[in-house]
């Protein structure tokens, strides 16, 4: 059970949060211009790496804010937490 430092509320137990998949996948601004393959890339393709992964998390049972997390999937170490719109920290 993680201890997550919500950038708006501080440290809270994982059960207050919801994981929202890979971060930094921007919704295409002009979907109509994309081929089926390009759209499928956006829609379906997600990384599943052993190591540091960037993820979206939502403080669902708290402030309801979304934020980003850099988490090492091999040992669940949370490397960084940063707000939506911010760049991922250098590794």
């Amino acid at each position: 059970m993680f201890l997550i430092n919500c950038p708006y509320c501080g440290e809270r137990d994982q059960q207050e949060f919801k994981a929202g998949g890979e971060a930094h996948i921007e919704r295409p601004k002009q979907p109509t211009e994309l081929s089926d393959d390009q759209w499928a890339e956006y829609l379906f393709m997600r990384k599943n790496i052993k190591g540091v992964q960037f993820e979206r998390w939502n403080h669902a049972h708290g402030c309801r804010k979304w934020f980003n997390m850099a988490r090492d999937t091999s040992n669940d170490e949370i490397k960084a937490i940063y707000k939506m719109g911010e760049k991922p920290p250098p590794q």
């Binding site: 919801k18 929202g20 921007e26 919704r27 979206r56 939502n58 669902a60 309801r64 804010k65 979304w66 939506m84 719109g85």
Partner: peptide, 13 residues
């Protein structure tokens, strides 16, 4: 609600 909030906060701030 959670889906709408998601789009508002992350795609269309």
């Amino acid at each position: 609600l959670s889906k709408l909030e998601d789009y508002l906060q992350t795609e269309w701030p």
